[in-house]
């Protein structure tokens, strides 16, 4: 299919454009920060897409993994001057351990019950991070120690330009991981679980194991993104990195809004949500911080009403309408 060939070309062109954009911008400017955050959330949405999209395990607790990553590398950097690359890997391991622990009570839960259980688990971790002040610094937050002679090894730079390229590289890698899983045997198994879990079991799919593998990959990626975020932001607190609205729901929303289970979904979702949120925040000021959440809700309801398959499907439909290709049941869009 031409569609299949077009996709890599489009993605490659997209990466090139994204790599060139910063050249025209002030490397210390506000726009660069928004672009970095957009790339970060596209990656986060894609990480969530592995469980939420492919297996329809709607997790609302992914902030737990993100925060574990951010805190682990930062604490290790503070205490032992450990490179965030290594701290990030340790964060990934801890996040996978937490995912394994969480799977014991949640793997058999379905639908709302799974969503609620993961939400509760994420909140539990946030409460722990707030009260375990000796290690985390508690509610006042934690700062990444500033190293005057920054380097790639210590993941510290004098402008956000290198951070931007790190976020971009991470996004490319995560999209490749997602694509590899989706088109491989695990993708078939997760799709089977999504579409009929009982039938999947009866024809030999170890549904528990498949969900567990997906959850661990997703958790590990999310944790490393937490480390990248910490090294970009330099200061954070438990309510930010373990937040339901700030991380967990936003990750899910970005994937669902863009087109759940599709490679392009989180990319479209993040490109839409993050700049809009930033614009709303700067326009209305911090006094109306709740407004962006309200806007999410409204947009989500609209998208679900218009097309439950998300924005990418909506775009595909519009395009088909304009090109006269009435193929509304083309669901194979990546």
């Amino acid at each position: 299919m031409t569609r299949q060939r077009l996709l890599p070309v489009l993605l490659f062109a997209g990466v090139i454009i994204l790599a060139l954009i910063p050249l025209g911008l002030d490397p210390r400017g506000y726009e660069m920060r928004i672009l970095c955050i957009t790339l970060l959330f596209a990656s986060l949405g894609q990480a969530w897409n592995i469980v939420g999209g492919l297996a329809n395990q709607i997790s609302l607790g992914h902030a737990a993994y993100f925060g574990i990553g951010a805190y682990t590398s930062t604490i290790l950097l503070k205490l032992f001057s450990l490179s965030p690359w290594l701290g990030g890997v340790i964060g990934m391991i801890l996040a996978v351990a937490f995912a394994l622990l969480l799977s014991l009570p949640t793997a058999r839960l379905k639908g709302h019950y799974y969503a609620l259980a993961t939400l509760a688990a994420g909140e539990a971790i946030r409460v722990i991070a707030n009260s375990w002040a000796d290690v985390t610094g508690g509610p006042v937050g934690i700062s990444v120690p500033y190293l005057p002679d920054g380097s790639l090894w210590m993941m510290q730079f004098s402008t956000v330009l290198p951070n931007y390229y790190l976020f971009l590289a991470a996004l490319v890698v995560i999209c490749l991981v997602f694509w590899k899983i989706k088109s491989g045997a695990l993708g078939y198994r997760l799709r089977a679980i999504k579409e009929n879990e009982q039938a999947a079991e009866v024809i030999g799919v170890d549904t528990y194991r498949s969900k567990l593998i997906a959850a661990c990959v997703s958790a590990a990626i999310t944790a490393f993104l937490g480390t990248l975020y910490a090294q970009f932001q330099f200061f954070f607190d438990p309510d930010t990195v373990f937040g339901v609205a700030t991380i967990s729901v936003k990750m899910a929303l970005i994937a669902i809004l863009g087109g759940v289970g599709r490679l392009s979904g989180p990319l479209v979702g993040a490109a839409f949500i993050i700049p809009m949120e930033e614009m709303a925040n700067s326009y209305f000021g911090s006094s109306a911080a709740g407004l962006s959440q309200f806007a999410y809700g409204a947009i989500l309801v609209l998208v679900i009403l218009l097309n439950p398959h998300g924005l990418t499907a909506l775009f595909a439909q519009l395009r088909d309408r304009f090109t006269g290709k009435g193929g509304s049941h083309d669901r194979s869009v990546a």
Partner: peptide, 9 residues
């Protein structure tokens, strides 16, 4: 008996 295919696939 009541057919349990992966309907979207």
């Amino acid at each position: 008996q009541n057919v349990a295919l992966f309907m979207e696939s």
